[in-house]
Computed example of a mutant assay.
Amino acid sequence: MAIARHGRGPGAVARAYASQVHPVFMLPPVATALFGAALAGEFDPALALVHAGTAFFAVYTAHVKDGYVDFHRRGEDDDHPMTERGCRLGLVGATLGFLACLAGVAVLAESTATPLAVALVTPTWVIGYLHAPQFDTNPVTTTLGYPVGIGLCLLGGYAAQTGRIAAAPIALAAVLVVTLAGVKVIDDAQDYEYDRSIDKRTVAVTLGPRRARRLATVALGVGLFAVVPLAIARVLPASAPAASLAFGGVVAVAVRKDSGTATMLLVRGAYLFLAGLLVATFFRPLADAPLPDITVLGPYTYLATEVVFGTAALALLVRAGRDATRRAAATIALLYPVAYVWDWYTLEVGVFSIPMRTGIELLAIPLEEHLFMLVVPALVLGIHETVHARRDAEPADEDA
């Protein structure tokens, strides 16, 4: 029986199987597996490559199974390079390749590392095999399958080298899972109309495209910002937020684009994010760099920070429009008396002190505190008006 649907002979068979290698989706898990090994510090290159092989075959299994189900079972795809027999043989070959690499991990890893490494690696194949038709019809599993697999690749790469799991790889895996979940939601939204017509319950179908885009934006924001407190807590290196800053620029552009363009930008931006995290955690370029010390401004330090953030708040409100600025001014005016009494009381009873200030006082509290009570709510309202103005401009969802 034939294996390839287009052409005959070994060349056609090779082309059919090679067509299931999708670098865009295969490079991240393979690179992440190697990243996990690099996090261990001194690592065994052979073990790292064998473990990366498990990631490759797990994703290859997912691609072959997905094509088999979508074309031969559901009739969703217009074409597929392999016959049913070819798909089954491809699944057998991918599974054997995965098992061979898994055995290699067990042999090359230290005896104490083997159980944990195997426990973390095995689910990646399970996720790939069950991607279709079990996982890809549920909004939770269809969204989290690939990101969770990426996280397991990182943890498995680290565990294979060390036999344990540390805070840094766990934190990085969590950041990648949340961030890539946002990318996956936007990616799935490309097929919203078709998925809806066959009752395929992706997040976009379940929530509607508009709410799904909001959820994806929140996930991306949470994942990118999480790097900052993790760096402050010294779980991640001090330079790790630079990776979030770089990817954040891509996200800021992508979330305003259509799903196809956004996905293209975000997938490539994710490579940049991963590369930035790798450089930060492996080379630690800012390990010995002190924090910028703005106290060189002396008594004007606090005032200077208020000028910076106040300027940002004013810019946001002006951009939001005259009505937004008027609403913000009215809200701040009503809030000010409450904030004034609260601020005076906390200063009076010694809850906090402000050493880096001018010393000028108005109505029994420092000048800087008067400005603080204006700047903070203005910044909050500026962000609020900007976000909701954008949402109001979006078209309403169709019934999902």
Rank of each mutant, 00 (worst) to 15 (best):
P10I: 08
D195G: 06
L314C: 14
Q134L: 13
P292H: 07
H384R: 13
D191R: 08
H51L: 13
D199I: 09
T305I: 06
G86Y: 06
Q20K: 15
L230N: 00
L108W: 07
L291M: 04
R211M: 11
P123Y: 10
L207C: 05
P209H: 01
S353H: 12
D191Q: 05
A4G: 12
L180D: 02
A40D: 03
F352Y: 15
Q134C: 11
P229I: 00
H22N: 13
V64W: 05
T142N: 14
V253L: 12
A330Q: 13
A181T: 01
L108E: 07
T301W: 07
Y129R: 10
A119I: 12
R234K: 11
L116C: 14
L335R: 12
A231C: 11
A12N: 03
L379E: 11
S239R: 08
A55I: 03
P123G: 10
T261Y: 01
D79V: 09
V50G: 02
Y158A: 00
A333P: 15
Y302I: 08
E361H: 10
A46W: 10
R88H: 15
I354E: 11
V69K: 01
A219I: 00
G249V: 04
I127H: 08
R214T: 12
G93M: 10
V175L: 14
Y302P: 00
L96V: 15
V308Y: 10
T112D: 08
L379A: 15
V307T: 11
P285G: 11
L316R: 08
D323G: 13
P23N: 01
A181W: 01
L381C: 05
P355N: 10
T83M: 10
A378L: 09
P45K: 04
A242L: 12
D392I: 01
T114C: 15
G298R: 09
I232C: 10
V183C: 02
T206C: 04
L47D: 01
I360V: 15
V64Y: 07
A12F: 02
V148T: 14
G221Y: 12
H51A: 15
A12K: 02
Y17W: 14
R73K: 07
D397V: 00
Y192Q: 03
E193S: 05
T95D: 04
Q134N: 10
H63E: 15
T61N: 03
P139N: 08
Y60S: 06
K65V: 05
T142Y: 04
H131Y: 12
A219R: 02
Q20D: 15
A173E: 04
E348T: 09
A289R: 11
S239H: 05
G248T: 04
A216E: 00
V380W: 15
H370G: 07
I365L: 12
A242K: 04
L27K: 06
A270H: 13
R268M: 03
F35I: 08
E306I: 11
L152C: 05
A231G: 05
T295S: 12
T114E: 11
D66Q: 09
A94C: 13
P115E: 05
